[in-house]
Write a protein that binds this DNA or RNA. Structure first.
Length: 433
RNA sequence: GGAGAGGUACCCAAGCGGCUGAAGGGGACGGUUUGCUAAAUCGUUAGGGGGGCGAGAGUCCCCGCGAGGGUUCGAAUCCCUCCCUCUCCGCCA
């Protein structure tokens, strides 16, 4: 959520920027509730103080007399009345303030739908094939690399058995990412090339839990729970829709020493998504699955470096895609598309020759302190003060999608797939599938 | 799944309705003593959220004994729900 003090001081700005994101927020009502809330807090605290003084008085006199107890009773009745009112106001206040989205940074393009996202750049030329390029499933299913039919029999639609060399390819990609993000020389170069003011600290690989409890999940407020996520009712647990869910909540309600920052994780997790409301979309192949594996970067930083960390994550994404030699474009997402907690958001879309278009393979989210305020993740600065951290997350590779992109871009006329050079060391030198 | 024991500050730990505005110890930090170290000794070690007043430095309050409710004039202490940790049995990669 947003800082209430910021909303008080910038009500017009908050109204305008919320509208730019497609949120109609009643700031007037919010500030009214804020006033009410604060005057009730004052009333409640005054009564509590009287209650404390009253019971102190009894302590010094030993056994209380009936009249004194009557006084206490009166305070109690008044207090519980005020507390009841405060509870109601606070509930409404919280609902309204949580509905206010994060403020987009000034360089986020204005737009009311994803059609207004801006192509920031295109890198790499789509190949000209002297045959009609096939969709990845047209290659992978006959070659016995994916089996969706049997998966449907066992698990339903949007599941697959991934097999053989495609599995080897996936593990090669994982190894390649861990090596790249663990290499401070690579990070240092990306930091310098992009004029960022950051330490080149390596990303730590992390295998997070794939399930989380309701309380931290609600606190993270990252994505729409009911539509997105599977719930395990029996044990009141939610399945990760991304490593991000159990990574961003990891330091929930903690104060981190400044020396720990930046915390950079490269997480690997199987991700589960209900894909409610996507019927008929991408039903073929492995582009949109209920279950897929993903490498996700997560960064906790000081407020001063939050934006630079975001830019570094985008630079890393581009570097990774470039290393695989895939044509791609970078989208700067517009105000309507960046998402409620975001201050800025970037997508990378890789070229899919059979579809003849760029499709989303990566996203990078910069949340400033918006997410940290809900999760109460703070940093103790060297000078002793406590502040909210900034959070960033970004896809390293969603493995299903990136393998689909590799299969389509690197296909040959006789239905083989050329393995990108950087991955071959992780596949015993194997050059094609 | 069955049975039991717990959660108090950096750590250990006492307290089980008002005398706690939370003992005692360890560790850490600071002072004294000292050729150095050790020892002794004195002191500090409860933070974080929130509200009022103030231009500000501040200042006065409220909350805070795993979390949330409840009982009571008054709760670390009694009751309920939940979370977590540990021990034994069972099951299990």
């Amino acid at each position: 959520m947003l800082d209430i003090q910021f909303i008080r001081d910038n009500r017009d700005l908050v109204e305008t920027k919320s509208r730019q994101k497609g949120y109609e927020v009643n700031i007037h009502r919010l500030l009214q509730l804020d006033e009410e809330r604060r005057s009730l807090i004052t009333a409640v605290e005054t009564l509590r103080r009287r209650r404390n003084e009253h019971s102190d008085k009894i302590k010094h006199h030993g056994k209380p007399e009936a009249g004194i107890i009557e006084q206490g009773r009166a305070i109690k009745a008044e207090l519980s009345q005020s507390e009841e009112r405060l509870k109601g106001v606070e509930h409404d206040f919280e609902q309204l303030i949580k509905a206010v989205p994060n403020m987009p940074l000034d360089d986020v393009p204005l737009g009311m739908s994803e059609d207004e996202n801006k192509v920031a750049k295109r890198v790499g030329e789509p190949l000209n094939y002297d045959f009609v390029p096939r969709h990845h499933w047209q290659i992978a299913e006959p070659r016995n690399l994916i089996d969706k039919e049997r998966a449907a029999k066992i698990s339903g639609s949007r599941f697959a058995y991934i097999k053989g060399d495609l599995v080897r390819l996936q593990f090669a990609i994982i190894q390649f990412v861990l090596q790249t993000l663990g290499d401070e020389v690579v990070l240092e170069r990306l930091i310098q090339d992009n004029n960022l003011n950051l330490h080149p600290r390596a990303f730590m690989p992390i295998l997070p839990p794939a399930m989380l409890r309701t309380e931290p999940y609600v606190a993270s407020a990252r994505l729409d729970a009911e539509n997105l996520t599977y719930k395990i009712v029996q044990d009141d647990l939610w399945l990760n829709a991304s490593a991000e869910h159990t990574l961003c909540t990891m330091y929930w309600e903690e104060i981190l020493p400044e020396e720990m920052l930046p915390i950079r994780y490269i997480g690997y997790s199987t991700s589960f998504r209900r894909e409610a409301g996507t019927y008929g979309k991408d039903t073929e192949g492995i582009l949109r699955m209920h279950q897929f594996d993903k490498l996700e970067m997560e960064v906790f930083s000081t407020p001063e470096t939050g934006l630079d960390e975001h830019l570094l994550l985008v630079a890393i994404q581009e570097y990774l895609v470039q290393q695989l030699n895939l044509p791609y474009q970078v989208l700067q997402k517009c105000t309507a598309d960046i998402g409620k907690p975001n201050a800025r958001g970037v997508d990378i879309e890789c070229w899919f020759p059979a579809q003849g278009k760029y499709r989303e393979t990566h996203t990078a989210d910069f949340m400033t302190d918006y997410q940290a305020r809900d999760l109460r993740i703070r940093v103790r600065r060297k000078k002793g003060t406590v502040e909210l951290v900034h959070t960033n997350d970004a896809t390293a590779f969603a493995l299903g999608r990136i393998m689909a992109a590799i299969m389509e871009n690197n296909q040959t006329q006789d239905e083989r797939i050329i393995v990108p050079e950087v991955l071959r060391p992780f596949m015993c030198g194997q050059a094609e599938i």
